[in-house]
Simulated assay, not measured.
Amino acid sequence: MTAPAATTTTYEKIGGDAAVGKLCDRFYELMDTVPQFAELRAMHPESLQGSRDKLYMFLSGWFGGPDLFVEKFGHPRLRARHMPFEIGTRERDQWVACMVLAMEDVGIEKEIRAKLLENFFNTADFMRNRAG
């Protein structure tokens, strides 16, 4: 019998902990400075550090690395956690566009970005809780 082939996680493919940290840093830097994302930025507290840290912990596990968010906060319950915020198509699209730029800026490979974009869009779309 041969051993099953080891699968490489997205976490490993993009560069592990350091890459997830850079992605989150760049995402919130863009959100904070690019006028196109002003409405998205307005939904966040003055300091983005807590939001950045939670995204970092979530993405670590979501990409197949250490499940930091679950270890600290339990099940992500993404929709329930985002329910206090009015999220429509504009906010969804701003979040996705910001993440696309962040992925490009930190050098995530095109093929990986395409798959992540699909997953990010579907998840962001699921967060919508208002029309428009």
Rank of each mutant, 00 (worst) to 15 (best):
T2V: 12
T2Q: 08
A3V: 07
A3L: 12
A3D: 14
P4M: 04
P4D: 08
P4Y: 02
A5I: 04
A6G: 04
T7P: 03
T7E: 02
T8V: 14
T8R: 12
T9N: 04
T10R: 14
T10C: 11
Y11I: 03
Y11S: 01
E12D: 13
K13V: 00
K13S: 03
K13R: 08
I14S: 06
I14K: 10
I14Y: 07
G15I: 14
G15D: 15
G15L: 15
G15A: 15
G15Q: 15
G15W: 14
G16I: 09
D17Q: 12
A19R: 10
A19S: 14
A19C: 02
G21W: 02
G21Q: 09
G21E: 02
K22H: 05
K22T: 09
K22G: 06
K22S: 06
K22C: 05
L23F: 14
L23K: 14
L23D: 09
C24G: 08
D25L: 01
D25I: 02
D25F: 01
R26L: 11
R26F: 04
R26C: 07
R26K: 09
F27W: 11
F27T: 11
Y28M: 12
Y28F: 13
Y28T: 10
E29F: 00
E29W: 06
M31C: 05
M31I: 06
M31A: 06
D32L: 00
D32E: 13
D32I: 02
D32N: 11
D32G: 09
T33M: 09
T33D: 02
T33Q: 13
